[in-house]
């Protein structure tokens, strides 16, 4: 079991000794059952940290934000506080940190990874919880071993099989504890007995081509282009995304001609073709980088199964190129490496 008090103590100690600038973690939200991200700057606030199955966010996203702020401070000729930032990380979150390290977005000494084990289970899918009677009114969800969650509604506690509430990403998770860490709370559980990795992708690609397109056309048509999938993703750190390419920063030197003839990869209209272009571009840009935290799918307000696009490519990376994103931050990245025996038969 993760000892949350020990975790709080560890975080407080880091801050107390001035070893880190801040601790990024989870605290209780003000609305509903889900925990929310928080950044603790002072030891006294470490008491508010929590760890439970409602800690959904991939906090590595905030390391990216922090890095950008540090860089911005530098350009304003301010010397940023160079101490590291600590982050509470689940298995998937730590893989995200590993990819950021691999891509030299961060340096290893810039981050202290406070690993937390998912207790052999994982986090909940809020939609699965809300679909249950009274699920919307739950005030707490706790781990109850690997096989169940304890859900508190009003004064009543109910044990619900983990499988019924677990997020899909967690059902297929291969490493529910952070391999990359500076300290680990809780035990590493390797035997999970849930779903096979890539189960959902394999099922999806069994359909005929026309059926697959019918499904995705339906989903692309529903996309609102709120860009929550992009905004929540720790790997989507481009300063400017191709779909926003009408907004290249203009300078006083930018001519009207240039503005008028700038390429527009993707229109703003939320139509099938434009949304398809966006989602497919994003998927391919995450190839070999997606660590399957499933946050894109979780935050999608209309519940587009975005994870499938990413896991499809991760499955290909794994099966064709024996590559796993976030496994080792020293490895060469998927798309900057090759082997003579890479698939060639599709080429004329």
């Amino acid at each position: 079991m993760v000892n949350v008090d020990a975790l709080r103590g560890y975080a407080a100690d880091l801050l107390e000794k001035g070893q880190v600038r801040a601790v990024i973690g989870y605290r209780r939200g003000t609305a509903g059952v889900l925990a929310q991200p928080c950044t603790i700057d002072e030891a006294g606030e470490a008491e508010t940290l929590v760890w439970d199955p409602t800690c959904l966010n991939n906090l590595a996203r905030y390391l990216v934000e922090d890095r950008q702020q540090q860089a911005a401070a530098q350009t304003r000729n301010k010397t940023p506080d160079g101490r590291p930032v600590a982050i509470v990380a689940k298995g998937c979150d730590s893989r995200a940190v590993a990819v950021l390290l691999q891509e030299n977005y961060l340096k290893r000494e810039d981050v202290v990874i406070i690993g937390v084990s998912c207790e052999g289970s994982g986090v909940i899918d809020p939609r699965k919880l809300a679909a249950r009677p009274e699920g919307r009114w739950a005030s707490r969800v706790d781990f109850a071993g690997a096989d169940a969650f304890k859900v508190t509604v009003g004064g009543d506690e109910t044990l619900i099989p983990a499988r019924d509430l677990l997020a899909d990403r967690c059902l297929e998770c291969r490493a529910a504890a952070p391999a990359l860490n500076d300290v680990l709370f809780g035990e590493v559980v390797t035997e999970r007995g849930l779903d096979e990795p890539f189960r959902a992708v394999k099922a999806a690609q069994g359909a005929t081509e026309d059926a697959r397109w019918a499904t995705w056309e339906h989903h692309f048509d529903r996309c609102l282009r709120c860009f929550a999938c992009r905004a929540v993703c720790p790997m989507c750190y481009c300063p400017e995304c191709v779909v926003d390419s009408t907004t290249f920063v203009n300078t006083p030197g930018t001519t009207a001609e240039e503005k008028a003839t700038r390429i527009r990869w993707c229109e703003r209209s939320a139509s099938v073709s434009e949304s398809a272009l966006y989602h497919l571009t994003r998927a391919i840009h995450l190839a070999g980088r997606c660590i399957d935290c499933g946050e894109c799918e979780r935050v999608c307000p209309v519940n587009i199964p975005l994870r499938l696009l990413n896991t499809k490519l991760e499955m290909e990376a794994f099966e064709q190129f024996q590559y796993e994103a976030g496994r080792d931050f020293g490895q060469a990245s998927l798309l900057s490496s090759f082997r003579d025996e890479d698939p060639n038969s599709f080429i004329r």
Partner: peptide, 10 residues
């Protein structure tokens, strides 16, 4: 990978 992705979404 691009070809695989195109195939995947039909």
């Amino acid at each position: 990978l691009v070809k695989q992705l195109l195939q995947f979404v039909g």
